[in-house]
Design a protein around this nucleic acid. Structure first.
Length: 273
DNA sequence: CTGGTGACCTGGCTGC
DNA sequence: TGCAGCCAGGTCACCA
């Protein structure tokens, strides 16, 4: 499911329902996600409570009260979190539940099991998976100048460059395609050959694309739903992603579809240079 | 260091 | 109807 807007939407959806409530139990039905869910997760969580929740890149980080540690959650390709008071008995792919004292449950579902649930007793920002992440695209340290400096002497195609989480977090395949279209940059262009002016346009395009997608509640292609099981409405705003062979919304010529790093890339060879 | 590829896993769709 | 093959929102580990 999830690029940054979908993770952000999920975080907003679960926060109110999980904070400042005593955790009565953690129930793990399948620990085999991308990495195994730690065997002591249950004792780690029991009788604690979450005092804050935030997003870093595509990770959701839940902090326990009284500095008891943090839980890191990643949704992978198909992970979903739901918060509800009346959940049906778990079915296939519903891998774990966190139950709260007021009867609410946070439930994780993940068909492909590329997601993760890990814990740390230290500062989560020092966690191996978090500490080397690049800046937040919607934060203060992300702009055209930053991208320009990072990209000098790189031969890597610009699409791969902006999808690298060490460069900038949260830009996945959908929004990389969309932002490059908005900025008029061909996805195959070598990063090191792009001008500072073009990088200003690109950083703006990334920010605008992500903001608008968050406002629309994310993109539902197939099965993404938020914490209340509602879809996102950004799909109708997509200009290039999943539209290979269709007409460019700007010039009406046929959009090209290629593969880069084994991912679908769609662009307009007239509008993007 | 850099960039490219395979790996993880399940299900849906396409085409023979 | 069956089945092989390909594709899907991510990203780490490993290789040259």
């Amino acid at each position: 499911m999830p690029e940054l807007p979908e993770v952000e939407t999920t975080l907003k959806g679960i926060s109110r329902g999980i904070l400042h409530k005593k955790i009565t139990s953690f129930v793990c039905r399948d620990k085999k996600l991308r990495w195994p869910i730690p065997a002591d997760m249950s004792s780690f969580l029991k009788n604690q409570s979450f005092e804050s929740a935030y997003r870093r890149g595509k990770y959701i980080i839940l902090n326990l009260a009284n500095k008891k540690g943090s839980v890191l959650i990643h949704l992978g390709m198909s992970g979903k979190l739901r918060i509800s008071k009346k959940l049906n008995p778990p079915v296939k792919h519903e891998h774990w539940d966190i139950n709260f004292t007021d009867g609410w449950t946070l439930r994780y579902t993940d068909i492909r099991k590329f997601g993760a649930m890990l814990k740390t007793r230290k500062d989560p920002n020092d966690h191996k998976l978090i500490k080397n992440l690049g800046p937040e695209p919607l934060g203060n340290n992300f702009n055209g100048d930053y991208l320009f400096k990072k990209s000098r002497k790189k031969s890597l195609p610009i699409k791969n460059f902006i999808m690298d989480s060490k460069i900038v977090v949260g830009v996945g395949n959908i929004y990389a395609n969309e932002a490059l279209f908005m900025a008029g940059i061909r996805p195959t262009k070598k990063s090191g050959l792009i001008s500072k002016v073009k990088f200003e346009e690109l950083s703006h395009a990334i920010i605008i694309t992500l903001r608008e997608a968050i406002e629309a509640g994310g993109t539902t292609l197939k099965d993404y739903t938020n914490a209340e099981e509602a879809p996102g409405y950004f799909k109708k705003e997509l200009k290039v992603y999943d539209r290979g062979g269709e007409n460019c919304v700007r010039c009406n010529k046929k959009l090209k579809e290629i593969r880069q790093a084994n991912r679908q890339t769609v662009y307009c060879s007239t509008c993007q240079n």
